[in-house]
Design a protein around this nucleic acid. Sequence first.
DNA 1: TTCATCTGCTTAACACTGTAAAGTAGCTAA
DNA 2: TTAGCTACTTTACAGTGTTAAGCAGATGAA
Lengths: 208, 208
Amino acid sequence: MGTKERRDREREALREEILAAARELFIREGYERVSMRRIAEKIEYSPTTIYLYFRDKSEILNEICEQTFAKLARTLERIEARDLDPLEKLREGCRAYIRFGMRNRHQYRLALMVSGESLEGAFDATYEGSMGERAFGFLLHGVERCQAAGIFSVGEAAVASQVLWAAVHGVTSLLITLGDGDFPLIEKNRLIEETIGTVIRGLMKGRG
Amino acid sequence: MGTKERRDREREALREEILAAARELFIREGYERVSMRRIAEKIEYSPTTIYLYFRDKSEILNEICEQTFAKLARTLERIEARDLDPLEKLREGCRAYIRFGMRNRHQYRLALMVSGESLEGAFDATYEGSMGERAFGFLLHGVERCQAAGIFSVGEAAVASQVLWAAVHGVTSLLITLGDGDFPLIEKNRLIEETIGTVIRGLMKGRG
DNA sequence: TTCATCTGCTTAACACTGTAAAGTAGCTAA
DNA sequence: TTAGCTACTTTACAGTGTTAAGCAGATGAA
């Protein structure tokens, strides 16, 4: 009597289908511009069906964001596993973070540039155990390693890594919002490299 | 025959009233959460009257943002006029910038964290001659002064000041979105001071 | 003073939005 | 065979930004 099992499978399949449709639309056009009706149309179900699978629109977004940030976490863990000196490893991580933000601009924005207000409860996923924690953990770990290696001046690693994060997030955010606006930003890669370089230099030992 | 003059005055007065109502609502609740009907209700006119004074909702926002950023520009120019050594003047400007962002979170977000997409044409004001230009000009000037004084290593000032901007914007943006979320950010002022300090140290001469 | 025009505003309406409640086929188990 | 449940749809609500049409009163010309 595998009928329950089959139905569970079918249910999961439709849930996945909704997520896939929403993801594609969100990435192409951004969360706010995509309506529940558009998602429904894409999967050829009535709009309210979606509510049988997700509490509301923001829950769909949350799930997608979590998946996307899991990708970032994996990328960073791959860098973590590479054989690089502490400084270069940290730099590579920062580069990967910024690239990730630019490639996933819509989701990056929703997770780190919108959430908290204006968007009802978008990405309110608790931090503990989240992908965000894993991603930030990379930075923290990288900073600690540089301190242990005598490259960075010792001190609270939490402070140093949040400073680094602020800077890295700053470039990412700036490139996302002004990337092709009319503000005369210097060349993208130049800005990225110089920012990473400057902050890391500022964290280094000696001369302070 | 001052009737035309009087009507122009009245027209201007209502325009001002709309702006004042919108500003208060936007600041309290954020752009997206405030509807044209709410603004209209506040000034006791019908919703469509607003369209006789502004092309659309985003034009109201633009005007308000421009005014707000003018305040930032004035604050920075007051610092510029003070008698401080180049480094401390630059630091003071950065502090003022971040404080400004936090006090005007809604408008800061709309101008620098949303614009470009998702929000139709919000704050698409051309950069040339804008308040944004004046504000960024402060940073540029401050960096040039530090280079001239032999404190910063020489190089393209545009690069250094955009790096500094990225960092300063990064803290601001992070504090706005995560300020009272559940991410365990270190204490606000600590993060602000450390970020400014670290980036400026990274821009300094010697030890590279 | 009378009348046409113009000004400034309002009412009604359109095409959307996210979402809740109620209704309805068709499968399932007794 | 029938009662109930599952999965979905239809309908509806209260809201959004915005446009078009209408209308009262001030204005300028005769």
